[in-house]
Every structure is written in structure tokens, then in C-alpha cells.
């Protein structure tokens, strides 16, 4: 199947997936026995006040009616109004998604830059010092809880060494880069705003490392395993017999073949990271959808919870589509029927 057919088919498949996501999140969030109107009004509000708020937000309607209204809005690109911010959920997500995407992309880049070389080194020097070192890193990275690592990194690099900031996306004193993609690193580079670039880089390092650690371990292990597998293959032996240099054999022949499972893991990890930024964004005061979602859940902000779930699902599906496309590029023999 050609790439554009694949894309069209996937887009069509996305519709029932997203519909399912709305139904599931609606059912689950509304089955929590909570009262967002009362939470909004406060413990001291009178019953009449709570009723007025409930009416204003349409929470007094039967659940099926609320769901139908939500779906009708969705068809018009309206994700509803958030109870906690009193703004359209779509605007809230538009404001916050770039921050999360930037953090996730940065972490994904770190995962590749660190994880793949670790995996290659481990495979190349199997059971030797680099492999032991990589194994130690893998065990550490797999064992460390994210929230703990985040706090320790803050303590060391912010409090003790004073090298990096403890949170947010950019310093208050810094002029924000012009919004082209809303990814500060990219926008500051595109506009040649180097101080903003460096400042954003400083801010993203700690949350980026924290978010990347667990995934890096997965990438390193997957690369090692598939490299070891590839290095046993006949075509590698043939390449070596043809007198190709060790570097060329590993980087050009073995790696390209070993990368396919790594890319699969990367695609899955990207979706998982996007959903897993809650804790990291919370600790590093990162103004993304993770923080937004966490606050929405505690406030039982139904529309916001559903909006975030939809967007995460959409990104997840897109990431998987990109993985499938990258398969075709990495291995021209792969075609989907």
C-alpha cells in the first residue's frame, strides 16, 4: 500500500477510536460520585448557589443529554467550557499543548541520543566494560521513581549547584520568542533569538532528563538486543568478509536493520510520555496539558478531562502512524496490505 493510502486509512480509523475515547472518558469521569458544582462554590455556599452553578454549567441535565450535547459541540470543533478556567477547553489545550509537545519531543530526542549509542556500545562490547556500565545505567534508570528523580535533580542542580532553574518554561525577564510553532526552542532558533533559546534550554534540561530516563532505558535495551541479533546475521558476515570497516558494518548495515524495533518502542513511548508528563509537569511547574489534566481531575472538570484525553489519544494515534511510515522508509520491503 502506498503511503498516502495508509494515511487516509489511518485517519478514517481514528474517528471510531476518538469516539470510543469520548464515550469511555465521559462514562468514567461521570461515574465518580463527585459534585464539581459544590467544589466550585465552596463548602460554605448555600444549596441555592450550588444549584445555580449546576444549572449554569448544564450539570443538572440527564447524563445522556450531556453526552449528546458534548458530541454535537465536538462536531463543530467545540470541546466545551472548562469549569476550572471558565474558558473554552480548546483554547486551554491550544495554550498548553505546545509546552507538553516541546518537553516530550526534547525527551524523545534525549532518549535517542543517549539510548541508541548506549545500546550500540553494549552490543558492540558485549559483556565488557561499556556493556556493564550500560547495564548499570539501565538498572538505575528502570528502578528510579520519576517524582524522586525530579526532586533530587532540583535539589542538586537548582538548590546546591545553582546551575539550572527549578521550573517553568522560560525566565520571566526573558522576552518570549515570537510564536511560530509555539515550541520555544524552535521558535527562538527560527527568529535568531539566542538568549531565549539558551534560557529555554536551561529550563527544559531537568524536566527533559526526568521524562527521558525511563524511556532511554527501554531504547537502550531494545537497541542492544536488536543489534546483537543483527550482528549475527549473514549479511553482516558478508559485509565483514567484503572488507568493510567495523564502523561501517555497525553504523551502516547493522544499525539500520536494528532500528526498526527501536522505532516501534519510540512510537509507543512517545504516546506514553505524553500521558506521563503529569508528575513531571507538576513538579517542574511546566505549563503543559499534564498540569492542566491533573488539576482538572482534582476539580472533576469533566470537559477538560475529556478534552485532554481526546488530544492525547489523537497524538498517540499520530505517533503510531508516523512509526508505520518510518518503517517504510527504514525498510522499503515493508508495505501494509
Amino acid at each position: 500500500m502506498k503511503i498516502h493510502y495508509l494515511i487516509i486509512r489511518r485517519i478514517l480509523q481514528t474517528i471510531p477510536v476518538l469516539l470510543g475515547v469520548t464515550f469511555l472518558t465521559f462514562s468514567v469521569s461521570h461515574s465518580v460520585p463527585g459534585d464539581p458544582a459544590r467544589a466550585m462554590a465552596g463548602i460554605y455556599a448555600t444549596v441555592e448557589t450550588v444549584e445555580a452553578i449546576r444549572h449554569r454549567w448544564g450539570l443538572d441535565r440527564p447524563l445522556p443529554a450531556q453526552y449528546v450535547i458534548y458530541l454535537r459541540g465536538l462536531l463543530h470543533g467545540d470541546l466545551g467550557i472548562s469549569i476550572q478556567t471558565r474558558r473554552p477547553v480548546l483554547d486551554d489545550i491550544k495554550d498548553r499543548l505546545p509546552a507538553t509537545l516541546e518537553l516530550t519531543l526534547f525527551a524523545a530526542l534525549l532518549m535517542c541520543v543517549i539510548g541508541i549509542p548506549f545500546g550500540i556500545a553494549s552490543a558492540n562490547w558485549r559483556n565488557r566494560l561499556p556493556d556493564h556500565f550500560a547495564r548499570l545505567f539501565v538498572v538505575f534508570g528502570g528502578a528510579v521513581p520519576t517524582f524522586w528523580l525530579a526532586l533530587i535533580l532540583q535539589l542538586i542542580f537548582f538548590r546546591w549547584l545553582d546551575w539550572l532553574p527549578a521550573g517553568t518554561r522560560i525566565s520571566r525577564e526573558m522576552v518570549e520568542p515570537a510564536h511560530i510553532t509555539s515550541l520555544y526552542l524552535l521558535d527562538s532558533l527560527l527568529t535568531g533569538n539566542m538568549p531565549a533559546f539558551l534560557d529555554t534550554l536551561e529550563h527544559i534540561v531537568l524536566p527533559g532528563i526526568t521524562l527521558a530516563l525511563t524511556g532511554t532505558v527501554g531504547i537502550a535495551r531494545m537497541t542492544r538486543a536488536s543489534m546483537l541479533d543483527a550482528l549475527q546475521k549473514d549479511f553482516i558476515r558478508a559485509a565483514r568478509a567484503n572488507g568493510l570497516s567495523r564502523k561501517a558494518v555497525i553504523l551502516k548495515h547493522a544499525l539500520k536493520n536494528a532500528l526498526i524495533p527501536t522505532v516501534t518502542v519510540l512510537g509507543l513511548l512517545f504516546g506514553a510520555m505524553l500521558g506521563g508528563t503529569f508528575v513531571i509537569e507538576w513538579i517542574f511547574s511546566w505549563p503543559g496539558i499534564g498540569t492542566y489534566a491533573a488539576t482538572s481531575i482534582t476539580n472533576l472538570d469533566y470537559t477538560a478531562i475529556m478534552g485532554v484525553s481526546l488530544v492525547v489519544a489523537l497524538v498517540y494515534v499520530t505517533a503510531n502512524l508516523l512509526v508505520d511510515i518510518s518503517y517504510m522508509i527504514l525498510d522499503p520491503r515493508i508495505r501494509y496490505e
Binding site: 463527585g34 459534585d35 463548602i43 472533576l300
Partner: peptide, 12 residues
């Protein structure tokens, strides 16, 4: 232990 909206729902 719950969140505010859930506790309120019980209290009221």
C-alpha cells in the same frame, strides 16, 4: 481519602 468534589458529594 478523596478529592474535594467527591468529599462534598458525600457531605451534602
Amino acid at each position: 481519602f478523596t478529592t474535594w468534589p467527591v468529599l462534598f458529594q458525600k457531605l451534602q
